[in-house]
Every structure is written in structure tokens, then in C-alpha cells.
Design a protein around this nucleic acid. Structure first.
Lengths: 289, 289
DNA sequence: TGACTGTCATCATGTTTTGTGATATCCGGC
DNA sequence: GCCGGATATCACAAAACATGATGACAGTCA
């Protein structure tokens, strides 16, 4: 018997990889979330997360549960949409960063279109920084993007380690500037990478910039250099650089969902989509294999 | 927030059209089931059943909820199967009456095969009476069929009114014997129909017998006569006879799930399939339109 | 018509479950 | 070795739950 509240907590933890953050997002306390997960673990008889106080990771059973939880909560979403019957309509200008678009977002959007056929959805794919700017300028209603360091707003959807990745046989020479593959400004990952290098006084040069993730990936696959990327979103054909490569740590990235200034029709639609994203969750691509 | 316990109760009521029977099947009390349904109705803000103490019927919203509930509980089933990981295997001889086979059973069986690929499922489709006999003879492990009046065993899966149906333009002459379309013995519906007519001293003659439901349907569509059938299972092209046609009432039919003598491997498989049938529920065909 | 039976809704109640806050425990980094 | 940030545990108060008793109501049978 899997209580939906427990599944919600579980899903949020799986997404944020943090009991504390999950609790914050759900409006619960950390101890509650902890209990929810434990209940599920008791009910299944399996451990769902490995967690040694400083790192939370899904187990294989956890991955399976993720699928079940998502399916159940998705139906809950649909049922709610159906019964509240808020005939959501209007135009919704939604901005998403490319990292997400590549993976689970299509599914979520498809389900959303099915549940709310009367919403005209306009999707903008851009750099996270650009999306935030457009949101501020009132050109978007809802944005799913990396969190800007200085901007605490938004519901945490996904937290991940930012790591260095590159082609399999890539070797770095410690004496030479680090060859970087980055988004153009105002890329948030770009800024993080440069900051990290400069803090260590490490020299760098940019070997590729592209506004398109596929452009960056192509460059990285070709072995032109390294790029900073979410650990759980590593595209096929690229690999995390070993720690001994001597590059500085990059910390974490948060993907957040931010609402624009509310205005009438778009607000309901934005709420509905936000709920779908938060509930439907994101598988977000396979592990870097 | 739809609690699974409430959904289970709701589903059981939708299947049995009875709060009392649902409670019995679930091992709960009637008042509990009543509360469960009311909670759901509160949560959705819609009435899910029309019920005037002597008739329970799904509303349109109830039909919708039925879909949601089934999907959620189905995933629960799958999750349970996955985590208990009881690697169910072995041979399972399952008998089902044709009424069901035509409708939702394929879906349930498909899901079952997916969840328990190592079970060799042998399906027997026969008259309910024959299935009961074969079960008693140890030739079947699990049977889904109409309940025999004298046999109280089995979990109630589906309760329905038995009604007279026939072709659209069928007219009956009150002076002449009722033209009957029936299964051969030991058909349970057959017995019920004959009993009802004889109790009223009404003359009848058999115009068609067939061991196959499709045979009966064909005869009925051709306007050869009337047949007794579950009200909610009326096949397309056939219609319930109006009360003023003067035929006697037929009462209710119960479809039950009965286990055979338990023996080893088949027992786990039978339990799993029984759970799937009870949880996955049956849509059981559209209304007779 | 009037008692009867079977059904569902309601209510008070005792019990269980839930969410919480405080606290213990653990790990990594400084 | 200590501190900061993270999860687990525990006791408790509040909420939710299942229950049995009771009431209302509709058909049934006499």
C-alpha cells in the first residue's frame, strides 16, 4: 500500500537528491520526508536510496520505484485536472533550458497537452540565463532552468552535481590552459566553470562556444576540450573526467521552476504545467555510460 | 489526494454495485466503505455514485474515476509484484466464462503475462457450470465465472442485474411461448431463465442453443428470440426489453473468482492472477446502447 | 396497509497513524 | 578535532481511521 504522500516525498527526494530540499519543496519537515521514505522502504522491503548523510543516491530498486511513483502521481495529476475541471485555457509561454528538453520533457509536455488541450503552449528553448532575462522582461510565463546563484526564487525541481566531462580518451596537460567548451554568455554553467578555474588560478582558453547543446556535445565528442555538465545528464559518448585530472570541483546545479508575473489566464495554465513538471518528474536521461 | 484504500473501496463498489458486498470482499465494514467513497466524493467535488438505498449506479464522473482508480491500482499491483519479487512460476490453469473474455479480461491477462512471464497460463473458456465442474474435478486452478446459486464460495468480482435482451424491433406475443435463446446445460443463466418463466407458469420454447456466446448473440440479433444477460454486458446491437414486455424479473448475477484445491506452484500464481483481476477490475464492455 | 428485510448514511468513539520539534548521529571539510 | 550541514530517531499532540450502533429509506410479503 503506497500512500501518495509518501510517493510524493520519495519522488521529490529522487529529484533533488536531498531530503531537506525535498521537504522544503513539499512544505513538509525533513523528518517527515525521512519517515515517508522509510515507510516505502519498509513496504517494499528494499532500500530505495543509499544515503550516508552526505550523499543521496537512488538504488536499483529505487529506480524501479521511481517509475511506479511517477506513473501513479501522473494519474493523480490527470484526475485532479479532470475533476477540478478548471478548463484551463489561454496562452502559456514556457521557457526551458536545453538540458531538459532533450530528455523527459517531451513526455511531460505531451501529457500536459492531452490534459489541457485548450492551452496554447509556446515553448522557448534557450540558455538558462536568457530565459531568466526573458521571464523578468515579461516575455515568458514560466521557466524551467538552472538557478542563478544570486536568485533564490523558484521551486527546486532537480539538483545535481556539476562535473567535468569530455571524450573518452581525452588527456589534459596540466601545464597548458584548459580547453573549454562552453555556452556563450549569459550561460550559467559557463560562469560557474570560469569562476571555478579562476579561483584556482588555472589558465584556460575557449575552444568552442555554441548556443546549442548539440554543438557543444559534438565538440566534446571530437575531443576538442572539456565541458561542465550535470552528472546525471551526461550525454552518450561522453564521460566524466576522473578526479585526478586536477580540475577544480564545480559544486551543484539546481534546476528550478520560476513563475513570471501572474496575469489572469496564463496563471492557471502555469500552475498546471508546474504541477505536471513537479509531479511527473523527470528521468532526465540515462547515466553517463 | 486519492488514498489507495479509498480507491480500492470505490473500485469494489463499482464492480459489485453494492457497498455491503464490496465491504465483505475487502474485509472491511460497510460504514468504512461508505466513508471511503464519501471521501473520494469530497475530494473530487463530484458525486461518483447515484444511490437510493436500493440501487447503486456509477455517475459519469464515477466512470471517469473508475479509469483513474484502475490505473493507479494496476500500478500498485505491478509494484507489489516487482518488490515481493516472488518470481511466480509454474503452470496455472485458469477458466473464465465467455462473458468476461470478450471484454476487459484480455487487458488483465496481458498485464499479468508481462508481470509474471514465467507462469504458463492455460486459459479455458467454457460455460460457468462446466468451469465449476472442472474446478471441482481438479482440472482447473482458478475460475472466473457466474456463481452457482447453491455455492457460496468465491470472491465476488462483479454483480449485475440479469435482464432480458433482444433485437431492437423484437415484439413478443403474450399468448405464445417465449422464444428463448440459451446456453445448453449446465448453463447457469439458462437455469435462471427457465426457473423464472416456470415460476410464473409462462410457456416457453427454445429457439436456439449454443455453447458460444457469439452464437447466441447472432441468433438474438436476427430476432429469433430473447436471451437473459447481464445488464451491463449487453453486446452492441442488442437491447434490454422494456418492463412492459411482461417477462418475469431475473434477479442478479454474481461473477465470482474461485480457487481450486491449492497445490504448490499453482497457488502463488493463482493468488497473483486473482489479485490482478480484483484490482485491475473490469470495464466489462460498454452499456447496451 | 403494516411489519420486515436489506441497504446505505451518519455519528460518537476508541485506536492507529501522521507530522512535528527536539535531539542524536553521522560525514566531510577546514 | 571541531564545525556545519545532512539524515535518523523518538516522544508526543493532532488528525485520520475503522468500527458498531443507530437512523432513514425502499422494496417485499403477508
Amino acid at each position: 500500500m503506497y500512500e501518495p504522500a509518501q510517493l510524493r516525498s520519495f519522488l521529490a527526494v529522487a529529484q533533488t537528491l536531498s531530503f531537506t530540499q525535498a521537504a522544503r519543496r513539499l512544505g513538509l519537515r525533513q523528518s517527515t520526508v525521512s519517515q515517508h521514505v522509510r515507510r516505502l522502504e519498509d513496504a517494499t522491503g528494499r532500500q530505495l536510496f543509499t544515503r550516508d548523510t552526505h550523499a543521496v543516491e537512488l538504488t536499483e530498486d529505487g529506480e524501479a520505484m521511481l517509475g511506479f511513483a511517477r506513473r501513479i502521481l501522473q494519474v493523480h495529476e490527470q484526475a485532479t485536472a479532470f475533476f477540478t475541471g478548471t478548463r484551463v485555457r489561454g496562452r502559456l509561454r514556457f521557457g526551458a533550458s536545453e538540458d531538459f528538453v532533450l530528455t523527459r520533457l517531451p513526455e511531460i509536455l505531451e501529457a500536459f497537452r492531452y490534459d489541457h488541450p485548450e492551452v496554447d503552449l509556446e515553448l522557448t528553448v534557450e540558455l538558462s540565463g536568457t530565459l531568466h532575462e526573458q521571464l523578468a522582461a515579461g516575455k515568458l510565463d514560466l521557466v524551467l532552468a538552472k538557478r542563478r546563484p544570486e536568485d533564490p526564487r523558484g521551486a527546486l525541481v532537480w539538483r545535481d552535481d556539476l562535473v567535468w566531462i569530455g571524450a573518452e580518451r581525452l588527456r589534459l596537460d596540466a601545464d597548458r590552459p584548459v580547453p573549454l567548451i562552453v555556452y556563450p554568455p549569459p550561460g550559467i554553467t559557463r560562469a560557474r566553470a570560469l569562476q571555478a578555474l579562476e579561483r584556482e588560478g588555472r589558465a584556460w582558453r575557449i575552444v568552442c562556444t555554441s548556443g546549442s547543446l548539440n554543438g557543444l556535445i559534438a565538440a566534446a565528442r571530437a575531443g576538442l576540450g572539456v565541458m561542465a555538465h550535470s552528472r546525471r545528464l551526461i550525454p552518450p559518448g561522453l564521460f566524466r573526467l576522473p578526479d585526478r585530472s586536477g580540475l577544480p570541483g564545480l559544486g551543484k546545479v539546481d534546476f528550478v521552476l520560476v513563475h513570471g508575473r501572474r496575469h489572469g489566464a496564463a496563471e492557471d495554465a502555469a500552475n498546471a504545467l508546474a504541477a505536471a513538471v513537479l509531479a511527473g518528474g523527470e528521468r532526465l536521461g540515462r547515466r553517463g555510460d
